[in-house]
Computed example of a mutant assay.
Amino acid sequence: MGIMARRAATAVTSADVARLAGVSRATVSFVLNNTQAHRVSEATRTKVLAAADTLGYVPHAAARSLRAGRNNLVLIPAAVSAIGRLVSGWIDDLHTELERYGYTAVLHAGRFTDPGTAARAWAELRPGAVLALDGTSLGAAGAEVLRRAGVRALMAFAPQPAEGVYTVLFDDRRVGVLAAEHLVARGRRRLGVVMPRERGLSAFAEPRLAGARSVAARTTATVTPLEMEYTHASAAELASGWAEHGLDGAFAYNDEYAALLLHVLRDAGIDVPGEVAVVGCDDLVTAALQRPALTTIRLDVPSAAQVAAALHDLIETGTAAPLPAVEPVLVRRESA
């Protein structure tokens, strides 16, 4: 058992692959890294790949990065709770697109007290690029920390540019504005805005609330924040006390929270849209399948292919052509 334990703790190296294949370590490196500048015969390539497969050899990413002079890791800071269906699908597409350029995308769900601490934690991993979906987490100071650590590309979805950061403009306040304006236009004056209790969502929910409040400030509408967890119990508790708030309209943060709210309001005997009009966000496939069909806000986001191409340009050259801003678009259905 002691011998087996020692063997299990011994990592297979490229030297082991080279010995089994009967080639040099350089040839192993050329084959496994798919180095185009060095021609290797198909027969030799087959032998190397077979030897690596037999031994279970996996290249060392850090060592490969050192040889290449750059790290091919693209770090995406994001709390797991912040990744709804819309974002998770987009990130999955982004993984695929980045792989075409030889990059690996990794989600980082660390908890940090401030942007500076976050930037230092990301810098410790020495990624080739950082893509911040919450642009407020990556300011000029954080960008400087990452630049000094050798991070080649910094991209953020944010309402305004930060020095040293390639910015895709996305102002969540506009989502709240659009939702509240529509509810007011439908004759609703007492608006509730669902504020998710889940970690990581306040960075998106707070600006949306601010946008709704800006509409109330210039109309006769009022806005009441409504805290809610994404659980049936929490939503049912909110619905049971709905009459106390006297609300006739609700912006439910996104389609997932909106769908949950629709169901508990119906169970509580509250008619939608008769008594309460409800608006969601993201325009998920399930939004149109709700009863009543959910009025929502579609987010026109640059495609994963566009973002991957821009990140590649930033890593390679330090510059990239501007990407279009994220545009919120109202989708009218029956719930509001």
Rank of each mutant, 00 (worst) to 15 (best):
A288M: 07
V215D: 09
P77K: 14
S24Q: 04
Y103N: 12
A129I: 12
A123H: 13
E229C: 06
A26Q: 09
A9L: 06
G187M: 06
L299C: 02
A9T: 13
T117E: 09
G110N: 12
L146E: 11
A179C: 10
A239D: 06
V215R: 06
A216C: 06
M1N: 05
P324H: 07
F30C: 01
H182E: 10
A259L: 10
G280A: 05
T46A: 05
R218L: 04
W122H: 15
V193F: 06
R213D: 04
R291F: 07
V184L: 02
L55F: 01
T44E: 03
V17R: 02
G69L: 05
A18F: 02
I315A: 09
Y253N: 06
R199P: 12
R100D: 14
H38R: 05
S240Q: 15
T10L: 00
R19L: 08
V177L: 11
V329M: 08
T224I: 04
Y57V: 01
L289R: 13
A11Y: 00
T104P: 05
W90I: 10
E275H: 04
P161I: 09
T286Q: 08
Q290S: 10
H232N: 07
A310K: 04
D171K: 11
T54G: 00
V23A: 01
A293P: 10
L107T: 15
P207L: 06
L154H: 11
V307Y: 00
V145C: 02
H95M: 13
P207M: 03
D271G: 01
V279D: 03
G269K: 03
V264Q: 02
E42W: 00
P328Y: 12
P292E: 13
G142M: 01
G22A: 07
A21G: 10
S14R: 05
S65L: 02
L191D: 10
Y230N: 11
